[in-house]
């Protein structure tokens, strides 16, 4: 079992002929993901990594029955690409693109919620269900199938944790990178709920960082509604206030969003908090 994507997922790639889109489509196909279609306006009829390319998402969905989409288009076209996917009936969207304007995301997330469509991202590494489907850019070779669910706002820090778990022989049910932007389609609580409901997940690793209050909200949710053990980590303990640390959402403002406050919230919710990334897999190894 897993969450969000699996062997049955019929994936469409928006921006399939771009540099990133083409490269990662080949990687996803090689991993065994069912990539059924691609979309690049004006390039319909071509093939990319063996995948048929269409001019519009609606055409691609009609022709192939795609039910999930991954978006690699440039930031200025991303909001439109998401709306096009929703309009065509896609139910699960993963948006990899970084640098989407916040006002675009406010409008888009509102529209997604109205239509009940799940979107992961933007500015995220995507989702991987090891051994079944890779929807995004998480390297497949650092993962293995198993029963630990991973959710994170980070990219490479997540890879670190996945790699460390795999090296210890601890497999993962699904890993979800929810992205580092201030306005996200999917929040920690959404993924925690999905892992709680997934019979294939026994333990959850949650990797947060400075900025916003989603970790605090997630901690309260863990306390109230999650019965599975949770291991946590917060990045950015040395980050100064008022400075954006790479991710658009990683900023301490008005005294809110500090690592200290988030660690305290985690601990108060009974989450086992690692002091540094190497410790995450150590703690998980002791618990499984």
């Amino acid at each position: 079992m897993s969450i969000y994507v699996d062997k049955q997922t019929r994936l469409l790639v928006q921006g399939i002929t771009g540099r990133e889109g083409a490269f990662h489509t080949a990687q996803m196909v090689a991993y065994g993901t069912q990539v059924v279609a691609g979309v690049t306006p004006g390039k319909g009829g071509q093939r990319e990594a063996g995948v048929p390319v269409f001019d519009t998402v609606a055409q691609a969905v009609t022709a192939t029955g795609a039910d999930a989409s991954i978006i690699y288009v440039p930031a200025r076209f991303t909001a439109d690409a998401i709306l096009e996917a929703v309009d065509a009936g896609i139910r699960t969207i993963v948006t990899i693109t970084e640098g989407v304007p916040v006002h675009d995301m406010l409008r888009v997330t509102d529209y997604l919620l109205l239509h009940g469509v799940r979107m992961i991202g933007p500015n995220c590494p995507g989702i991987i269900t090891p051994g079944e489907a890779k929807v995004g850019i998480i390297p497949g070779n650092i993962c293995m199938p198993g029963r630990v669910g991973v959710v994170s706002r980070s990219g490479t820090l997540t890879y670190e944790v996945l790699h460390a778990l795999t090296e210890r022989g601890i497999g993962q049910s699904t890993a979800v990178g929810i992205g580092g932007d201030p306005v996200q389609g999917t929040k920690f609580v959404d993924v925690l709920q999905a892992f709680q409901d997934d019979p294939g997940t026994d333990l959850i690793v949650m990797i947060g960082e400075i900025g916003g209050t989603d970790e605090e909200t997630a901690a309260q949710f863990v306390k109230d509604s999650v019965t599975k053990p949770v291991v946590g980590f917060i990045a950015g303990q040395t980050a100064p206030p008022g400075k954006r640390m790479g991710h658009a959402g990683a900023i301490i403002s008005g005294g809110m969003g500090t690592a200290e406050g988030k660690v305290q919230a985690f601990q108060a919710a009974g989450i086992a908090v690692a002091r540094h990334p190497d410790e995450i897999a150590e703690i998980v190894a002791r618990m499984v």
Binding site: G155, T158, I207, E209, A235, T238, H276
Partner: peptide, 17 residues
């Protein structure tokens, strides 16, 4: 010097630790 924002923050944190 790190690749990735989360990993960069985590690396700084470990230096402090």
């Amino acid at each position: 010097l790190v690749n990735g924002a989360g990993l960069a923050m985590a690396s700084m944190d470990v230096l402090k630790l």
